[in-house]
């Protein structure tokens, strides 16, 4: 990361930690238009974008206060990812309610924020561990988790048979699971 980027990140983080309106206004100018575009493109409304963005900032401020966040990319990219995930979460929550999958009862706003934070942290843990895998594993699992059939995976990677493909997927999943279990964050998030 460039020095300039670091300075920006520090300034924005401090604005969120201190509730400084000038800094937060700058965050709005810099990132909100992209979030609005994303939400509108993904069957959301203007109000959804506003809601998502505020929740993302609240989440980020809480985490900056209580924990340490490592920014692997720019502040803007990190915030945008949180927004994307919150919107993803909202859309899936609607689906869950419609299909009536037994779900914990709906809590208040505060519990929602807590839930959202833990889920974002979990998502970060899983994706980070995923990125530690070999390029080949990442590619194969990328297809697998996005519901591409084994037949198509065989074709794409020129495996000789489907069972070779299955073995490959199995090995990569096992490796990923081991990485997750080893990470101390896993137990911090989950009560298992």
């Amino acid at each position: 990361m460039t020095n300039m980027g670091n300075e920006n990140t520090n300034y924005f983080c401090n604005s969120l930690i201190n509730g400084d309106n000038i800094g937060i206004n700058k965050i709005y100018q810099l990132v909100y238009p992209k979030v609005l575009k994303f939400v509108l493109k993904n069957s959301g409304q203007r109000e959804d974008a506003e809601d998502v963005f505020q929740r993302a900032l609240i989440q980020l401020s809480a985490r900056l206060k209580l924990k340490r966040i490592e920014f692997h990319s720019s502040f803007e990219a990190y915030l945008f990812t949180i927004c994307m995930n919150l919107w993803r979460r909202d859309l899936n929550l609607k689906k869950r309610r419609v299909t009536n999958i037994p779900n914990q009862e709906h809590f208040d706003e505060q519990s929602d924020s807590i839930q959202e934070i833990l889920e974002q942290e979990k998502w970060e843990l899983y994706t980070e561990m995923f990125n530690k895998l070999s390029d080949n594993c990442k590619e194969v699992l990328g297809f697998y988790y996005n519901k591409v059939s084994y037949a198509d995976i065989v074709e794409k990677f020129s495996y000789t048979t489907e069972s070779v493909a299955r073995q490959r997927v199995f090995k990569c999943r096992k490796k990923l699971s081991e990485l997750v279990k080893k990470d101390r964050r896993f137990k911090q998030i989950k009560a298992i």
Binding site: N85, R88, Q115, L118, E119, W123, Q188, I189, K190, I192
Partner: peptide, 10 residues
């Protein structure tokens, strides 16, 4: 297209 909800938080 999915999201991992947390059902057993610490």
């Amino acid at each position: 297209n999915s999201w991992a909800f947390e059902e057993q938080p610490n």
